[in-house]
Design a protein around this nucleic acid. Structure first.
Lengths: 335, 335
DNA sequence: GCCACTTGAGAAAACCTTTTCTCATTTTGG
DNA sequence: CCAAAATGAGAAAAGGTTTTCTCAAGTGGC
């Protein structure tokens, strides 16, 4: 019903309820002392008038703006959006809104954005990115407001949140072994990525130290190429391929189909990321590891809020479990 | 260099510069009257002290928060993120930050978000979405702050921004004709989408009123299916396929390759959206129509800012041109 | 030498809310 | 019945900035 006229201030509420501003404020915030009847009456009146406290005035006084910043260099939003959804979900009930700042890899721009956030007195910052082992191109230490690093590298003594790549990889490979696959190959991205190392480590942990790993880049094309190499080699061909991401997995599936190799009958394929748009469109739809980014976001939101409130949070790295999403590229699964 | 200690207020700047608070404020905002020397001195001092005005105090007074809200129901961010990048780019220089609110299609949640934005005194709202002909599930009329609708439906008398689907489609089809293609078919999404109607209209405008159009859904699978139907029919096969989006186009390319039909030698394929992740990974990489969403975002940012400043903006629908991005799925192009 | 005008700068109000005192009244305990 | 404590509510300050007045000093014209 609220039309566009001037907002009602607490002054009007106080007047209408026949109390002072101070009493009105206390009634609405559930603080101070007063007769229960008074408190209810003020609330009643406030509700009728559609009173909404001015966030600026409140922030000015309380030093809390009910606002946080989410910083990311993930232009495409592949990782950031699910994260953001989680953050938002965790905070909306507390009345906290989120500034999203995409800073690409431009330190200048990053500075500008961070300064703008500080000017606006955000209660905290969540730093995020597209790569778990790289830092944002901006210094967030000594900021006077809490910072949580989610899905990006940060200082050792900071609160950091990442997905548990090793655990995810382990689940995937164990799933393949559970299906009876024994000649499992791992086709993944550049060895320079920490997540590649983690996943590779977990892979070898399950299949044995000389499990075959092919490093390349993150593209579908590399998936094709890897299959070409594997099937060209004289050695026995794999019966399962664990891929470093869904794009590689898609390339692998396409390449296998083109060779007349049946997925999943002859070869099982597992991806990583559960990027719906890729995983679901692959033929057959990919069984893949989901990093639970939304959950990660929720957690990051929760933590930054706790810090903003002054609660103690033990610093250090927190790893959140991944989850295998079973579709059809492995066989098995739902019967 | 700024450590975490208490922020420097304008009071300190005034003291250090040996002037009053009022003078300091005027010097920094380039208003009021004073000796040029004084103005410079104050600025110098402010810079040295690293003074940054408290945005809350400023907002409280000026009724402007240098903050806007971006509302979207595009969970995946396919359209919203490029838009957001543009908005942000247009506004960051003005010191304006953007609250991103993803509201799925839940009216309740939408209300909560909008209320939160209003509480925070955003200077304006940009409404966006994943579909140009659907409204967000929340009423944004009578808001007392300006609203710009970008890539979503809005009231007739509102400021609205969309991509020019017809023009984009025309460019694509004319490009195909320029390459000598004469048997062009249009494979697109559900006829219930306004953009489908627009693009179909433009297609027929160029190729003639009985140009063949196949309606389906937006998936790769539908691209496959469409090719099956086309090549199964006894009539002469097309020498070009204009697709309603990149996913369909990818399905089409894959299906053609599987049939041994060469793209682009025998058949040219054009997509729509320029969704890098799909368009670039297709074999061959897709020539496709880019909706210039970033540009659209820049424009939306510019407009909402102008409105917030109280400048007059003529309401109504603005269509922004699309642009054909030439890759390899048509032949022609860069030689 | 006087008046009108310009220039430079400061005092104080305003923005809206929260919070700390303070104070009057009522209740309790002895 | 009196002192002490508890209760209910308001006055006023605080938060950091912008803006509108106001005022004193300087300038120029006649």
């Amino acid at each position: 019903m609220a039309l566009s006229p001037a907002r009602v201030r607490i002054y009007e509420v106080a007047q209408a309820a026949g109390v002072s501003i101070a009493t009105a404020s206390k009634a609405l915030n559930d603080t101070g002392r007063m007769a229960e009847e008074t408190r209810q009456r003020v609330r009643q009146v406030a509700a009728e008038l559609g009173f909404r406290p001015n966030a600026m005035a409140r922030a000015l006084l309380s030093k809390r703006s009910f606002t946080i910043g989410l910083l990311t260099n993930d232009t495409y939003g592949r990782f950031t959006l699910p994260l953001m959804a989680g953050v938002s979900e965790a905070l909306v009930d507390e009345g906290v809104s989120v500034f999203l700042c995409t800073i690409e890899d431009d330190p200048q721009l990053a500075r500008v954005h961070v300064d703008a956030l500080l000017d606006k007195q955000v209660d905290g910052i969540i730093a995020s990115g597209k790569r778990i082992d790289r830092r944002l191109q901006v210094d967030l230490t000594n900021l006077s407001i809490p910072v949580v690093y989610a899905f990006t590298e940060g200082p050792d003594d900071a609160v950091r949140l990442v997905s548990d790549d090793a655990q995810g990889a382990r689940e995937a490979v164990q799933w393949l072994r559970g299906l009876g696959r024994r000649r499992i190959v791992h086709v993944t991205g550049p060895g320079s990525f920490a997540s590649v190392q983690e996943r590779t480590g977990a892979f070898r942990e399950v299949v044995g130290p000389d499990g075959q790993v092919l490093f390349g880049n993150w593209s579908e094309a590399w998936g094709h190429e890897a299959v070409r190499r594997l099937w060209q080699a004289s050695a026995s061909q794999p019966d399962a391929i664990f891929c470093g991401n869904d794009q590689i997995a898609r390339g692998v599936c396409d390449a296998l189909r083109e060779r007349g190799v049946s997925v999943p009958a002859e070869v099982s394929v597992v991806g990583f990321d559960n990027w719906e748009i890729v995983a679901a469109a692959t033929r057959p739809p990919l069984t893949t590891v989901d990093m639970n980014l939304k959950q990660l976001g929720r957690e990051a939101g929760r933590l930054v809020l706790a810090l903003a409130r002054g609660e103690a949070v033990t610093p250090g790295l927190r790893k959140l479990a991944c989850q295998l999403v079973v579709r059809q590229s492995c066989g098995g699964g739902v019967t």
